[in-house]
Amino acid sequence: MITVTNLTKVYGIGDKAVAAVQDVSLHVPSGGIFGILGRSGAGKTTLMRCLTALERPTSGSVMVADAELTSLNGAELRSVRHRMGMIFQHFNLLNSRTAAENVAFPLEVQGVSKPKRGTRVAELLDLVGLADRTQSYPSQLSGGQKQRVGIARALAARPDVLFCDEATSALDPATTEQILDLLKQINEATGVTVVLITHESEVVRRICDSAALMADGRVVEEGPLLQLLADPDSQLADILLPTGDPTLDPGQDSIVLTFAGAHTSEPVISGLTRHFGLDVTILGGAVDQIAGRKVGRLRVSLSHPEGIFDHAAVHKYLADREVSARL
């Protein structure tokens, strides 16, 4: 759906030049939910502005739905944008329009006839659970309701891709969950590709299939979540399923076991004790449902009463049970 190649965006010139995004390449597969996670200042907002052509990259290429955004003229860009939807942290609804009129906006822009707009708007407000608030103005709606209107508006023209710019960062935790579940449900029902940027790991953990981690303008890691989680060295895995700070247990050699396979229910830990006579101390860990699968990460220290054990055999034992670890 989206392919970014060697994208760099520099603001300012000369000594004051700051590269907000540096040499970023990534691929967003069609139909999934792709999360771009990073702290403020990591460059994710700039990256998304390049994906929606609100910003012109300094160099590199952005392909969205087979269109190279950097080479389009105004009219071509508008027609590509008719295939895009976007929701925002601060909603950006028009205060002068009712909920229904806000949702109708992209349809008006595309010249859809009034009767057709009416049907589509009613359908969408029903989808987002606001069928009874069609005539309300944004000022009369709560934050969650505003974002629902935003989602309905973004979906009105049946886009191929839905961009979410910190869409839940201004919402309380309960509302955040509802909005995330709604996004997930819409993604499953319509197959729209969702690209979201967020600084909240909870958002990625809850709904994303794949993700990229950004820091200092660069993509540090990128890929399907299950694949990243299975990598014991993955920073993203440690953000999503933190196992505690290793420096809190000095003197203990700890390793991280990741349970991302279908055999998560197998008693692997007691197996280590039974088969290898190892003492297993659990130092930290987390288990959660990620990308449709139950995934756990445990930080443990392994020791043998005699001080030595067969690392290769333990490794094979774990690998056979789809538990990844670096010994």
């Binding site: 609100l54 976007m86 950006n92 028009l94 008006e108 822009v109 595309q110 961009f163």
Partner: peptide, 19 residues
């Protein structure tokens, strides 16, 4: 942000002014 929202929805300058 409201103007950018309209831009991303593919509105042209005249539509942004009017709507």
């Amino acid at each position: 942000g409201k103007i950018e929202a309209a831009q991303v929805m593919g509105a042209n300058t005249w539509q942004i002014v009017r709507k």
